[in-house]
Amino acid sequence: MKEEKEFYERLEKKGISRRDFMKYCGVVTATMGLSSSFIPGVAEVFASPKQRPPVIWLHFAECTGCSEATLRSMYPWIDELVLDILDIAYHETIMAASGHQAEDVLHAAAKKYKGKYICVVEGAIATKYNGAYGKIAGRTFLEVAKEIVPNAAATICIGSCSSFGGIQAAKPNPGGYKGVGDALGIKTVNIPGCPPNPINLVGTIVNYLLLGKLPALDDLGRPLFAYGKTIHDSCPRRSHYENGEFVTAFGSEEAKMGYCLYEMGCKGPDTYNNCPTAKYNDGTSWPVEAGHPCIGCSEPNFWDTMTPFFQEKK
């Protein structure tokens, strides 16, 4: 295994020990819900693919929060993800080229890797007035999506906007915005969240590279490894709920005691996501740990169905 030896030497030069690296792989493997026997396989995916899988990342109506979330990836580090593991052929927020040069890159990549690229979509698609409210290089989001999405090996919708329409689709939805699946009438893999935890995107991609297929999905297209349980079921404050110990005001004694936030409007019981176990930014915290109710951001139409956020759901 000369290649493997070289790989670990390269890592060590970067100040990453083999042990640390296997820890990264362990985190990803655990998030995906795979047994530890998969760790070497995950390591191989990260190590040295012969040809880095091409990715075309499209931005439609969104806030770029999902790209920003991905930029915060630490398992693996974002620079490894975008430079060593994947071939990010098109991504407007970070690519060097602009204007015609950027357009050329998009068309060339779509042609060269036809049927082979992973298409990641961030943002919803305007449909009112034939999609006139959102354009890139003179073409509507809808036209761009129709060119790029059908020729992808797999399309992954990152965030609640591309998955389900997101905030711009909230009532009264002035631009007629829809999620990608809805707008194009196709099935997509959805990684909702506002924004989602980057580990769930990484897990999905690694699953694809490792096993050659997409992970098991629920009926909303969400990978079960991440969206299989409710927030409430994994919540460390669950025992307070069972004991009837509730926060009724922010800044109160009950808040200081870390009681259950259900009466403050927490949507944890209605929300499928792995926030309590994966946590955010290197496992530093998540909303309920920070004393804030869950707003249900990985559920379809949560801007309408989960609001008012600070009231118990009826």
């Binding site: 930014n281 290197d282 909303p287 804030h292």
Partner: peptide, 14 residues
């Protein structure tokens, strides 16, 4: 994340 739950889209103000 330490005082604001997460980034992006912090969620710890009221």
């Amino acid at each position: 994340a330490i005082f604001g739950a997460k980034n992006p889209h912090l969620q710890a103000l009221a």
